[in-house]
Design a protein around this nucleic acid. Structure first.
Lengths: 201, 201
DNA sequence: TGTTATACTTAACATCGTTAAGTATAATAA
DNA sequence: TTATTATACTTAACGATGTTAAGTATAACA
């Protein structure tokens, strides 16, 4: 009776194959410039096959995003495990957050900019990966406040200020690649340092 | 010999009519969901007529955004005229920037998020209104540095850090209206205060 | 060996941005 | 006033898009 299991395995493999092809194309060519036919070509199936595995193109991007956000969450939580100093963890987390956005700009923009526009409140609703990421930020900030590193005691506001800073610099770097930015790493570091310094003051 | 002038006037009127229709549709339905045919319908001309006035759909978006940016620039420059204290002007400008974004969220997103996606690098090039807005920021930061208010002497980096902060909080407030934010004005003020404090430190 | 469910494909639809060719009409010249 | 020319706009079409309905092989089962 292993037939059903094998079939299920094969389906899952193809689903993953579609997902991988879509990710690669989305990242390299941009969501709008990737057609279902292009994805189908890449995996050597007919375009309609994709619809047996994903509701539509947006669902496909949704799935790609969820995967990458899980990666981000993993990266962040690994950081927390390896570090004991909360302020240092916060620093590294901020950097990792921005770098994630720059590595997967399409995913980042869909999740944090495009999708909320059409599906209001769906980006950070309960149980979503996005919410888990913000919860991670809450925990870190909370530790910093407990150790009296930050002057202000409001976890929520402090977290939101930090998030604004990293979100802002991430999107600016993504959206205006030709602007004469300060060297990328220096800018990111300065944004994070400035915000932390401001919270300490 | 007023014929030519009248003709030119009529052409300009139609151009403005197209622009207005496009803005209204873009803002209400989103750039991607608005077709050239839909715009044409609204002004009761054939779709191809639009191409006699604008190179393509992206050019149309470009023009809409330029208008929006000019509005923002006007708001900011009025602020500078009324104020002498540079740090106070900076504070108020930051607040005005965010409030502009929240008052015209669709325009803001079109200009700073959607357009760069379709017209790479065209948002802040030389002579553009976007560049003028950033130049305004440069001047203000420059004055603050001259008066030795900010510790760091790098005008560019300092400006970019400030921009990241206000851009970030603006977009977060627009895109996640259902998130349990700290009270709006308090959050905006805290973001600006924190960043300025960090730059002073 | 015949039946049925599964996995995939073919063909088509409506719509998109955009271009080339064509047509009225207004302005000019005779 | 009439013929010519320039201007403003439209019609028709192209290739490509996301997506759906209908059809076809093939594998699994009775």
């Amino acid at each position: 009776m292993g037939v059903k299991e094998r079939r299920a395995r094969e389906k899952e493999q193809l689903q993953q194959q579609i997902l991988s092809a879509a990710r690669e194309l989305f990242v390299n060519e941009g969501y709008e410039n990737v057609s279902m036919r292009k994805i189908a070509n890449k995996i050597e199936y007919s375009p309609t096959t994709i619809y047996l595995y994903f509701k539509d193109k947006a669902d496909l991007l949704d799935s790609v995003c969820k995967e990458t956000l899980l990666n981000l969450l993993n990266t962040l939580e690994r950081l927390k495990r390896d570090n004991t100093d909360p302020i240092e963890t916060l620093r590294k987390s901020g950097k990792a957050y921005v770098e994630f956005g720059l590595e997967y700009p399409q995913d980042y923009k869909l999740t944090f900019v495009i999708r909320p526009q059409f599906q209001k409140g769906l980006g950070l609703q309960e149980g979503s990966v996005g919410e888990k990421v913000f919860n991670y930020l809450r925990e870190m900030v909370s530790e910093c406040i407990q150790q009296q590193i930050f002057h202000q005691a409001d976890v929520e506001t402090t977290g939101q200020v930090l998030w604004s800073a990293v979100h802002g610099v991430t999107l600016l770097l993504i959206d205006f690649p030709d602007f004469p930015w300060t060297e990328k790493d220096k800018l990111i570091d300065t944004v994070i340092e400035t915000t932390i310094a401001g919270l300490k003051a």
